Amino acid sequence: MVYVFLANGFEEMEAIAPIDLLRRAGVDVTTVGVGATAVRGSHGIVLAADTLDSSAMPDDLEAVVLPGGMPGTLNLEHSPVVQKFIDHAVEKGAIVAAICAAPSILGHKGLLKGRKAVCYEGFEGELEGASVGSEPVAVDGPFITSRGAGTATQFALALLAALRGEGAADKVRGSILCP
């Protein structure tokens, strides 16, 4: 199961792209609302999460996805449930994917030390110990990071490739006419 966390102020494109593309490939995705099931994005779009954070259990965890946006990233970082899921994913060797400002959460936890990572411009200093690049998406072991809304499709496809292989990602890429 892939858990996509939605906190008030999340960047809509960064959440929707992974949810949509993973589901197109048949991956089980659960959206988790932090504090509420109706979650308002940074541009006023309200999404209905599949479950509330207090009900989510990480038992069958394949990946955790953290969309960026403000104040969504800060709301994710302050959530004990999100922190628990990240810790569980790391212990299990599952994928932890974060985009835009959200890689800062991983940096603050010390999870990016010695790893390649990318983020939204201006957050590089928050990726403590990482080798920060400028490519759209960085994959280093179980960590996938991406730069922002404009890279959301590439981020989602990289996540799909990590979960189900390049063939699955190429199939979805072709179906949405993505170069």
Rank of each mutant, 00 (worst) to 15 (best):
G72V: 09
C178T: 12
G174L: 13
T73F: 13
L106M: 09
L163P: 12
G148I: 03
G107S: 06
R173F: 14
P142W: 01
A7N: 00
Y3T: 04
V4M: 01
T31E: 00
V29M: 10
A25Y: 06
E77H: 14
C119W: 11
K84C: 02
V32A: 03
T30R: 15
A7L: 02
G125R: 09
G107E: 05
P80I: 05
C119R: 07
G122R: 02
A117T: 04
G72W: 10
L74E: 15
I86S: 01
A63H: 06
L112V: 05
E12T: 13
V90T: 09
V132H: 10
A38E: 15
G148T: 02
M1F: 11
D87G: 13
A162H: 07
I95S: 00
P80A: 10
V90M: 14
F155P: 09
P136Y: 05
V65P: 08
G148W: 10
K171P: 10
R164C: 06
G93K: 08
V29L: 12
I19D: 01
G110V: 08
T30F: 14
L111T: 03
D60P: 01
L160R: 08
L76V: 08
K92T: 14
G72H: 10
C178K: 14
G72E: 06
N75W: 06
R147I: 09
R173S: 13
V32D: 00
D53V: 01
G133M: 11
M1Q: 06
A156T: 03
C100P: 01
P58V: 04
C178S: 13
R147K: 14
R147Y: 13
S175G: 04
V27R: 07
S79W: 06
S42E: 07
Y3Q: 10
K171C: 04
E135D: 10
D60C: 06
A89V: 02
G174C: 10
K171L: 15
G107L: 08
V137E: 08
E62K: 13
E77V: 11
L74N: 14
L160Q: 12
A25K: 03
V82P: 08
L157N: 09
G9D: 04
L177W: 13
A17S: 14
R24A: 08
F85Q: 03
E126N: 09
I105A: 01
V90F: 08
A162N: 09
D170Y: 05
L21A: 02
T73A: 14
A158R: 07
V39T: 03
V29W: 11
K109T: 05
G133P: 12
V39D: 02
F85H: 04
A15S: 09
G129F: 10
L52C: 04
V46G: 07
E166R: 07
H78I: 00
G26M: 03
L177G: 00
F10I: 03
G68R: 06
V96W: 02
E91S: 15
R173A: 13
F10N: 00
A7K: 00
G148H: 01
L22Y: 07
E135K: 13
T145C: 05
